[in-house]
Design a protein around this nucleic acid. Sequence first.
DNA 1: TCTGGGGTCCTAGGACCC
DNA 2: TCTGGGGTCCTAGGACCC
Length: 388
Amino acid sequence: MSAAERHIAHLDMDAFYASVELLRYPQLAGQPVVIGGGRRHQPEPQPDGSLRFATLESYVGRGVITTATYAARAFGLHSGMGLMKAAKLAPQTVLLPTDFDEYRRFSRRFKAAVAELAPVIEDRGIDEIYIDLSQIEGVAADHGAAIAAAIKARVKAATGLSCSIGVTPNKLLSKLASELDKPDGLTILREADVESRIWPLPARRINGIGPKAAARLEAECGIRTIGELAAAAPHELIERFGRSYGAWLHAAAHGRDERAVVTEQETTSISRETTFERDLHARRDRALLTPVFTRLCEQLAADLQRHQLEARTIGIKLRYDDFRTLTRVQTLPVATAQPAAIRRAAGECLKRAPLEQRLRLLGVRASSLQPAGTPPPPQPPQTADLFA
DNA sequence: TCTGGGGTCCTAGGACCC
DNA sequence: TCTGGGGTCCTAGGACCC
């Protein structure tokens, strides 16, 4: 491993789901559009051949925005916001249903396009990747500017979509850099730029500082920006946030990150969950709940089988009407991908959960995964055997 | 009528074993 | 009938991310 400076890119597709939908419905370009909710608001063909799109004002339900176009963001709409709340802010916004199959197709397409130019890619979900450019010839000359521009052009040619790229010496800085010039941005940063370009940003922008940590930093330390975090005494961060997280906060604020670009990652869990249209009572609404529960288990089993995996641990997740979340898991003696075995184990978990309160969500999860057909480890002898 | 669905990683305590 | 330290497995919850 050379000690030479690394060149790591972070590529983020711009408003990905919404941009894919705009390819399908170009007449919506420039309009406020959000993606989200169920399947009930498909565009309806009109007698004159045009399409009639649903708008937020007619939405009823518990869905959230998964992606908003930049025009919709101008109204204050953003991903994660409840659609009912969004409807109050901008009722005329077009609402399109989520079509994950289509987004996955475009995801594969843009990643394949990048791989033609730079094959060392770390998947970070459907719409973003890290790319290690360090081995690309001539990258040091311009710190990755030319190859990043070429990647942007190749993605655009392959998908019709724009993306934003940050290139820096590490993943942490690249993730920050890719956001600095969105949409259709290209930002090159070196370590010497951290003070001027990164330190003014809110600490919350750092990948790994979420709402809780950001609130504590501000309330307990008066820290709002990354620069203020960088100036904090390491031992104080460690006292407040623990040895591991405190030390990481300090390093992150100084733009230090040694993590490698990881090209292969094993799945550690698979889950299925659903939020009910109205809160259900475990006993009184049992007739409604039971088939949903069984179907989640069947879907989970199918997911496992599709991935050729088996699970040793099966768990459930409940969300109560007050949004508290509870989990129960059970580890089985033998791994399974069978719907009946999963249903049985999940049923045992459910017996150990309090069910007085109404539920808004029910989920089933498989973990301790292993390849299908892995021979079971030798079992400890049964009591009966010892005295046989 | 606030708050989806799919993930990862970390912590912490108890059981059990050497 | 005290006193250990370390290791693994399991469970529950929480923070965070896309």
